[in-house]
């Protein structure tokens, strides 16, 4: 072995396969992000509802799908749901019958549970006085939600959202256990063919790193655009890398999530 643990020729050869893996990882990120978010809204409303049973039900959902390790969720959906007769006969078997469908379901449920809390945190942070002012203007509850509460909640919750998306992307690495050839699976199979423990894994790691940091960059830009009304704070913050959001700086500490 030479000084560098990476076999450059192998790395070059593996690039196309790794890119294919990255594509799968990207799809397994994008779809659950959309589905999970769509699911998070109604569950968040239920969680914040005055009806106790509804709130408790939503809380149970969040506790389970947030508290259970993703790997177990994936096993549960992949191996566990097939046990249920009605599901095997039903029309949704197209979804639950394929590893890809199972991965999407497990990842979406997990992401939804996290997003319920992100959304709730953002919505609860909206100052009550501003909501009252909108009510006093005669704006309907629905419009207040769309035009006042949500835009502000996004600003307050952006940092938490970014953390969740980043850790979610990294979390997708486990889907290879249900035979999906994502980025990690591609690296593993190259390792199994070549017994080079460094090159494929380090290359995959570099891909993940780049993917994650592009997302971070995107969030940074989004945050800056959203916070243009606080231009001063953003300028001051720009000097502190990794601390984007100007709103709620004090709570950053509690929000550093892997």
């Amino acid at each position: 072995m030479n000084g560098l643990p990476i076999d450059l020729a192998l790395a070059w050869e593996s690039l196309p396969a790794l890119f294919d893996g990255l594509k799968v990882t990207a799809i397994l990120t994008a779809l659950p992000l959309l589905l999970g978010l769509a699911l998070a809204f109604p569950i968040c409303f239920a969680r914040m509802s005055d009806r106790r049973w509804l709130a408790l039900l939503a809380e149970a959902f969040v506790t389970f799908f947030r508290g259970a390790p993703l790997l177990i969720l994936l096993y549960l959906v992949y191996y566990g749901l097939g046990q249920i007769e009605a599901l095997r006969e039903g029309p949704f078997w197209i979804l639950f019958g394929s590893p890809f469908g199972c991965a999407i379901v497990a990842l979406s449920l997990n992401h939804a549970a996290y997003m319920v809390e992100v959304l709730r945190g953002g919505l609860l942070a909206v100052p009550h006085g501003i909501v009252e002012a909108s009510e006093a203007l005669g704006i309907t509850r629905r419009n207040i939600f769309i035009w006042v509460k949500m835009p502000l909640a996004i600003r307050y919750g952006l940092k938490a959202y970014q953390n969740e998306v980043v850790s979610f992307i990294k979390g997708t690495a486990i889907v290879s256990v249900v035979t999906i050839t994502d980025l990690t699976a591609v690296a593993n199979s190259i390792f199994e063919q070549t017994y080079d423990p460094f090159t494929p894994i380090l290359c995959a790691a570099a891909f993940y790193w780049a993917f994650v940091n592009i997302i971070r960059l995107g969030f940074g830009l989004w945050g800056r655009w959203l916070n243009r009304h606080n231009a001063e704070d953003v300028a001051a913050d720009a000097g502190v890398p990794g601390r984007g959001a100007a709103l709620r700086r004090t709570s950053d500490l509690g929000q550093v999530t892997p």
Partner: peptide
């Protein structure tokens, strides 16, 4: 910026 799984492998 890298999945823990890769670090474990």
């Amino acid at each position: 910026g890298v999945p823990s799984l890769l670090v474990i492998f």
